[in-house]
């Protein structure tokens, strides 16, 4: 009996030594290509500008807007409450802390949605959860929310409701701008951005990404 146990112990110890000698796999957890393809194929990561607007106005605490455009563009104009993580700084320590927050839905956005989607794919690949992309980006947001495009009288009530919502949202953002005019220089900078947004638009047509 004892001999059997000695033999078994020896086998186990050898197995353990074998494990010590096997090469260590890279510590970074990554999605394999098939899984990444599945994830990229799934459009549920795209959130509409209307939805985001609604959540901004409601001051949804679980929403974390991340502006992935270069810092200069962020300074000119960005969405309310957004933080700036330029794509090139996605792996900086600050960005890691921001992105590592549990229970927050991180929404990437850029001028259109290409740059934001790139950020999303990189984050998805290292198995980050709760990440989204704002469909259409800042330009689309500006065109739908901040510009007045009244629906046709013949449109259905859904379109009318959407228009009312957008109008209210526009008033919210405009009003906010006026109020904060004298408050802090920071928000003043952002507010001015609203007026200069045209500039952003032209930039993006030049290929923001």
């Amino acid at each position: 009996m004892n001999k059997q146990y000695l033999l078994l112990s020896a086998i186990l110890i050898l197995a353990g030594i074998g494990l010590m000698l096997t090469p260590k796999k890279s510590a970074v957890k990554e999605l394999n290509p098939e899984q990444l393809l599945l994830a990229v194929d799934d459009p549920s990561r795209f959130l509409s500008t209307d939805l985001i607007t609604e959540r901004i106005i409601k001051k949804d605490p679980s929403l974390l807007l991340i502006d992935v455009r270069p810092a200069e563009q962020y300074k000119v104009f960005s969405l309310q409450g957004a933080v700036n993580i330029p794509l090139s700084l996605l792996f900086s320590e600050e960005a890691k802390t921001l992105l590592g927050q549990e229970g927050k839905e991180k929404v990437f956005f850029s001028n259109d949605d290409i740059l934001a989607d790139q950020a999303w794919q990189i984050c998805k690949r290292i198995k980050m959860n709760d990440i989204f992309v704002m469909k259409g980006g800042v330009n689309f947001w500006f065109n739908t929310i901040m510009k007045d495009n009244p629906p046709n009288v013949t449109d259905d009530s859904k379109a009318q409701d959407l228009y009312t919502f957008r109008k209210a949202a526009r008033q919210y953002f405009m009003g906010n701008t006026n109020q904060s005019q004298g408050n802090s220089s920071e928000s003043e900078g952002k507010k001015e951005g609203v007026n200069v947004v045209k500039k952003t638009t032209s930039k993006s047509s030049g290929g923001g990404c």
Binding site: L12, I13, A15, G16, L19, M20, K24
Partner: peptide
């Protein structure tokens, strides 16, 4: 420590 080293230590401790 690496997984392998830990497992080896665990085996020795268990034995």
């Amino acid at each position: 420590i690496s997984d392998g080293v830990f497992t080896f230590i665990l085996i020795i401790v268990a034995l």
